[in-house]
Simulated scan of single mutants.
Amino acid sequence: MTIKRMDHVGVIVDDLAAAIAFFLELGMELVGEGAIEGSWLDDVVGLDEVRCEVAFLRTPGGHGQLELTKFNNPVATTAEPSAPANALGLRRIMFTVDDIEEVVARLRPHGAELVGQIAEYENTYRLCYLRGPENIIISLSEELT
């Protein structure tokens, strides 16, 4: 048996509208959004009486998807909201962009802040980490060759 594909990455957020706006500004496309609940959902996530709002966004070309989820019940919890880049667990989502400076400038009004600075790697890439909505670390890469 083999994997068919990686379908999507799921991110839990508290402000769904702000997270959607951020990723739309980044260049993703909203595929759909809505409320979900029911015993099937309780069974899947292992919680009782789950009520969520979800939004699916995809990258241009449709090769990658992101699921943003806001838990209305039970309310989402977090252990460390501003965890550093070297904390264990899922730490970042990386996107390749055409113009890293332009993308960072567009995302700043949506709350994005550089974690460090934009750096160049061996005359091949310009890279940076920035914090987006809910302190999600987004990594940007611009190919120089």
Rank of each mutant, 00 (worst) to 15 (best):
D98P: 01
A112G: 11
D43Q: 08
V97L: 10
A35N: 10
V54I: 14
G89E: 02
L30C: 13
L57N: 10
I137F: 06
G10N: 07
S139L: 02
I93L: 15
T59I: 02
V115I: 13
P60G: 07
L30I: 08
G61P: 13
L47K: 13
F22W: 06
I100P: 06
I136W: 13
N72G: 03
T2M: 11
E134R: 02
T145I: 04
T77Q: 07
T69D: 01
H8M: 05
D99W: 07
A85Q: 03
V44W: 05
I100R: 09
G116Q: 12
A76I: 05
A19I: 03
L66Y: 05
P109V: 04
M94G: 15
V9Y: 00
L30E: 15
G10M: 08
C128H: 07
E37I: 03
M1N: 08
V97P: 11
H110I: 04
L107W: 09
V50S: 11
V103D: 11
V103H: 07
G64W: 06
A79G: 07
R51P: 00
S139P: 01
H8P: 03
T145L: 09
G116S: 10
A19G: 10
P74N: 05
L114Y: 04
T124K: 12
K4V: 12
E143Y: 11
E25V: 01
Y125M: 14
G34Y: 04
A85I: 14
S139C: 12
G10R: 03
E53F: 02
D7E: 14
G64N: 10
V45A: 04
E101W: 07
I137M: 14
L144T: 01
M6E: 04
Y125E: 09
Y121S: 14
P133E: 06
F23K: 02
V45M: 07
I136V: 15
S39T: 11
K4M: 12
R131P: 11
F56S: 09
L26S: 10
A76K: 07
H110T: 06
L47T: 04
F71W: 09
T77I: 04
V44L: 15
R106V: 01
Y125C: 10
K4E: 15
